[in-house]
Design a protein around this nucleic acid. Structure first.
Lengths: 245, 245
DNA sequence: ATACATTGTACTATAATATGGAATAACTAT
DNA sequence: ATAGTTATTCCATATTATAGTACAATGTAT
């Protein structure tokens, strides 16, 4: 493991918590000598991964990082986009594309509902597999031992009174998802938020990605969810095919 | 300048051209020894900046890069977003937020027109200052010598028959933009594409950002553009204020 | 107005690190 | 079966990043 690279990334990650930081501030945060930190920061700036603020006193994340970020999984996102737009138009709720990241899912693409009642998540944010519809949809495509592996490593947290917080409960849900062909999250992660999801399978049958439709539980009644899940299953097949799996 | 960092970024940039690459392929591209490249790649993978493809044979950009990318200029994008949505609803054309990057502008945020006739640009792409409305809007807020600096370094290219390809022509346009308070690009960059833009000023009066409305020249007639520019000027003031300039 | 912190930045010797050579192992293609 | 790829490991060496010290430029408190 290249030390300076690891340290450089530690520095970049400091900006998750705060948008602008100075040299000393960063050096304390990453527990490195001020001059080492300064050296790393200067290099990061020359490379465009950091930039100085207009007053020259602090640093923030640079455009090069943004540009590289837009290239990540570009083809999957491009292929999926029109289907998400179609789903958004059909159901007028928020639609998402996520990718598994170890024990979590990361939101890759998101089209907000045109309704005023919005959902707070943004692209780049991540949430646990076990308490999201997308997460359960992805896990359902894996082998039982892989799922157990995940759940063994998972730190369960009772987000709402509906959150499943034991391996057994989640495992039972996974079975249901496999049977149904789609997953639901009815207020398991956030009170009043309901979500329907399907996995996008690769040619091993496993899923790295999933798509979902989410909205306030008041609108996401059973028959509406049923319509959505039917469409999602079809769309998932289409996307899987298009991605070349 | 930390060598391994510089080299690591060279490797990441290889993925601008191709989404998936192997070790040897990359080592040739960056002109480094295969084992050095391997070492760098392995570290990048452990850090989540690269990931192995499912078949374990190639590498692609990793989720960590995506996550960091979403944090770049987050506050500006968050503040601007609702205004862009409002503009999109009002005029039903594509709206953009860009940031200056040396001689170019980078698209930070983009809401596609609901019309079927779409514009090909995506977030993260960059285009020259001199032949875009957003670029001219930004330059118009700078001092004359700063603009000359930019134009001296610029390599002009005749994208269309309307493209301005001399410093003098562009300078004259800049004067017009300053007088009008907004900038236009009428098929200067792409045949049939017209764009109206205003700069977002910081508290030095200079602009790092700009917003624009763009659409097919057939729809972007003079009186329509005039309506748009009036709104843009107002919106720009609002955003500048909200950003805290 | 003066002294005291605290900031960012420059320089340098040293030790630790990344480097690239050589060699091997795992695949592909012929 | 064989040759030519590929990815990967190991290791000695020299280069490189490191952290200590020092300083200058701010900002803050007295």
């Amino acid at each position: 493991m290249i030390q300076s690279l690891e340290r450089a990334l530690m520095i970049l990650k400091c900006f998750e918590a705060k948008e602008e930081l100075g040299v000393t501030e960063i050096s304390k945060e990453v527990a490195l000598h001020k001059s080492t930190t300064f050296n790393l920061i200067t290099s990061l700036e020359k490379l465009g991964l950091l930039e100085k603020t207009k007053d020259e006193k602090k640093y923030r994340l640079g455009l090069e990082l943004f540009r590289l970020g837009t290239l990540v999984n570009a083809s999957v996102r491009t292929v999926t986009r029109p289907y998400l737009e179609q789903l958004s138009e059909s159901y007028l709720e928020t639609v998402n594309l996520v990718k598994r990241n170890d024990l979590d899912v990361v939101y890759l693409e998101k089209l907000e509902s045109p309704h005023s009642m919005r959902i707070g998540t943004k692209e780049g944010q991540q949430f646990p597999l076990y308490c999201t519809a997308v997460g359960k949809a992805i896990m359902a495509t894996l082998d039982d031992d892989e799922v157990m592996d995940i759940l063994d490593k998972t730190l369960f947290k009772q987000y709402t009174k509906y959150t499943l917080i034991t391996k057994e409960e989640v495992m039972a849900q996974i079975q249901l998802v496999r049977h149904q062909g789609y997953a639901e999250d009815i207020q398991e992660f956030e009170e009043g938020l309901t979500c329907v999801a399907v996995a996008i399978r690769n040619h091993y049958g496993k899923a790295e990605y999933a798509i979902s439709v989410s909205g306030p539980s008041t609108r996401m009644k059973k028959d509406f969810r049923s319509k959505i899940s039917n469409t999602l299953v079809e769309v998932s097949k289409e996307i899987s095919r298009r991605i070349g799996y």
